[in-house]
Computed example of a mutant assay.
Amino acid sequence: MRIGELAERAGTTTRALRYYEELGLLPARRAGNGYRAYDEEDLRLLRQIRLLQDFGFGLEETRPFVECLRAGHPEGDSCPASLEVYRRKLAELDDCIARLQDVRAQVAGQFERAVRARDELAAEEVRPPRCEWEE
Score class of each variant (00 low, 15 high):
residue 30 R to H: 00
residue 106 Q to M: 05
residue 57 F to W: 12
residue 6 L to E: 09
residue 102 D to E: 08
residue 69 L to R: 04
residue 72 G to R: 13
residue 49 I to G: 11
residue 26 L to R: 14
residue 26 L to I: 02
residue 111 F to N: 14
residue 106 Q to T: 05
residue 10 A to K: 09
residue 44 R to S: 13
residue 112 E to N: 12
residue 21 E to V: 01
residue 43 L to R: 02
residue 41 E to R: 08
residue 22 E to W: 05
residue 85 V to R: 12
residue 27 P to T: 00
residue 121 L to V: 03
residue 130 R to A: 03
residue 51 L to I: 00
residue 109 G to H: 05
residue 41 E to H: 15
residue 71 A to K: 12
residue 112 E to M: 04
residue 58 G to Q: 05
residue 5 E to T: 05
residue 87 R to A: 15
residue 104 R to P: 02
residue 6 L to M: 07
residue 70 R to V: 01
residue 50 R to D: 09
residue 81 A to L: 04
residue 116 R to G: 06
residue 80 P to I: 01
residue 23 L to N: 12
residue 2 R to Q: 03
residue 28 A to R: 13
residue 129 P to D: 05
residue 54 D to M: 04
residue 33 N to G: 10
residue 22 E to D: 12
residue 79 C to H: 01
residue 41 E to S: 09
residue 39 D to F: 07
residue 36 R to A: 06
residue 119 D to W: 03
residue 134 E to P: 00
residue 74 P to D: 15
residue 37 A to G: 08
residue 38 Y to A: 15
residue 12 T to N: 11
residue 123 A to G: 09
residue 23 L to V: 01
residue 40 E to I: 02
residue 97 I to T: 05
residue 127 R to G: 15
residue 35 Y to H: 14
residue 30 R to V: 03
residue 48 Q to H: 06
residue 95 D to P: 02
residue 23 L to R: 12
residue 77 D to H: 09
residue 23 L to A: 07
residue 66 V to A: 09
residue 117 A to I: 00
residue 88 R to I: 00
residue 124 E to D: 14
residue 6 L to Y: 11
residue 17 L to M: 00
residue 3 I to N: 13
residue 134 E to I: 00
residue 100 L to V: 01
residue 73 H to L: 06
residue 70 R to E: 11
residue 126 V to R: 15
residue 41 E to K: 04
residue 107 V to L: 14
residue 110 Q to E: 10
residue 43 L to H: 07
residue 41 E to A: 12
residue 9 R to A: 15
residue 45 L to W: 07
residue 66 V to S: 02
residue 110 Q to R: 06
residue 83 L to D: 06
residue 83 L to S: 13
residue 92 E to M: 05
residue 74 P to A: 14
residue 109 G to W: 07
residue 116 R to A: 15
residue 26 L to M: 11
residue 124 E to G: 15
residue 90 L to Q: 03
residue 21 E to L: 05
residue 94 D to E: 10
residue 43 L to I: 01
residue 31 A to H: 10
residue 31 A to S: 15
residue 127 R to K: 15
residue 113 R to Y: 12
residue 103 V to H: 14
residue 59 L to K: 14
residue 123 A to I: 00
residue 29 R to P: 06
residue 120 E to M: 07
residue 29 R to H: 05
residue 86 Y to K: 10
residue 29 R to D: 09
residue 68 C to Q: 02
